[in-house]
Amino acid sequence: MTKKKLGILGGMGPKATSVFFEKIISNTVAHKDQDHLDMVILNHASLPDRTVSILENKKQEFLDAVRQDFMLFDQSGVSNIAIPCNTSHYLIEEMQSMTDINIINMVQGTVEYIRDKFGEHRKVAILATDGTIQSGVYENECKKHGIEPFVPNKELQQKVMQTIYKIKSDVDFKASEFESIINEVITKENCTDVILGCTELSCIDISEELKSYCVDPMDILVRLSITLSGKTTI
């Protein structure tokens, strides 16, 4: 496969974008600099909050803000665009209509990974922002593939959001706080799998035992980005 340049629309948030970039590097088979992907990273941190855009019906503000980004990617000769932000995928069809460059669908890729690896008839917990939950983007994709989605109750969802925004604001917190959420959906709700549906959650170092239940969309996006760019994953 011909080597292709990857565009990364980041800044949602910056820490998650940094983790995504590092994962691309560490998961690419490479023996020298020239073996790695050529990437154009736009850390557009000033983009409107995605959850606010959804909950307050202000999606046009977000779409107007990213329009220039797609023009820059086009000018840079990018072949595929990765967006390491789950919530923004609610608007993937509108974003795709703005550009002829393929936008890698992290949500679709994640659910297809679960179906292909574990089969149908799974009960999958979706841990994500209020915006992602409200949009139903993961729920709809799960149902499309014969997978039962589980959405946290109000109290549990509040804990998830507190975790996400603590990471965004660089506030210290214990990984055990988030691990208790994972443990609850597994033991009390009988979920077979857990989708870490916000890239901030990818920044948490959870135990290996609980990690075995988790599917990280960022990892899925990393692998799709590498292979679509003509490289091999480790």
Results as ranks from 00 to 15, higher is better:
residue 214 C to E: 10
residue 198 C to P: 09
residue 145 H to T: 01
residue 202 S to I: 12
residue 133 I to S: 01
residue 96 Q to P: 10
residue 117 K to D: 11
residue 194 V to P: 12
residue 215 V to W: 05
residue 115 R to F: 06
residue 51 T to N: 02
residue 74 D to K: 14
residue 165 Y to I: 03
residue 229 S to V: 00
residue 4 K to H: 00
residue 178 F to G: 01
residue 78 V to P: 04
residue 49 D to R: 03
residue 145 H to G: 02
residue 181 I to Y: 09
residue 79 S to F: 01
residue 201 L to M: 14
residue 231 K to G: 00
residue 169 S to L: 15
residue 227 T to M: 01
residue 25 I to Q: 03
residue 39 M to T: 12
residue 64 D to E: 14
residue 196 L to E: 04
residue 108 Q to I: 12
residue 154 K to V: 13
residue 131 G to Y: 06
residue 173 F to G: 05
residue 164 I to R: 01
residue 45 A to N: 15
residue 26 S to H: 02
residue 232 T to I: 12
residue 183 N to P: 06
residue 33 D to E: 09
residue 225 S to V: 00
residue 111 V to D: 03
residue 141 E to V: 08
residue 53 S to F: 09
residue 69 D to S: 15
residue 131 G to R: 14
residue 76 S to N: 11
residue 2 T to Q: 05
residue 194 V to I: 15
residue 55 L to K: 10
residue 77 G to L: 06
residue 195 I to G: 02
residue 147 I to M: 09
residue 144 K to W: 09
residue 144 K to E: 11
residue 221 L to W: 03
residue 182 I to R: 05
residue 73 F to Y: 05
residue 107 V to L: 04
residue 63 L to Y: 14
residue 186 I to L: 15
residue 131 G to E: 05
residue 232 T to L: 00
residue 24 I to E: 01
residue 59 K to T: 08
residue 36 H to G: 00
residue 73 F to Q: 04
residue 189 E to Y: 05
residue 31 H to R: 08
residue 146 G to P: 13
residue 184 E to C: 11
residue 41 I to W: 01
residue 49 D to P: 14
residue 51 T to I: 02
residue 10 G to P: 12
residue 129 T to G: 08
residue 138 Y to T: 13
residue 12 M to C: 05
residue 41 I to F: 14
residue 121 H to F: 02
residue 205 D to K: 07
residue 201 L to K: 07
residue 148 E to K: 13
residue 185 V to W: 10
residue 181 I to V: 15
residue 113 Y to T: 11
residue 220 I to R: 09
residue 157 Q to S: 06
residue 160 V to P: 03
residue 123 K to E: 07
residue 231 K to S: 05
residue 186 I to C: 05
residue 109 G to P: 07
residue 151 V to W: 03
residue 208 E to M: 08
residue 44 H to D: 13
residue 129 T to D: 06
residue 219 D to E: 10
residue 223 R to K: 15
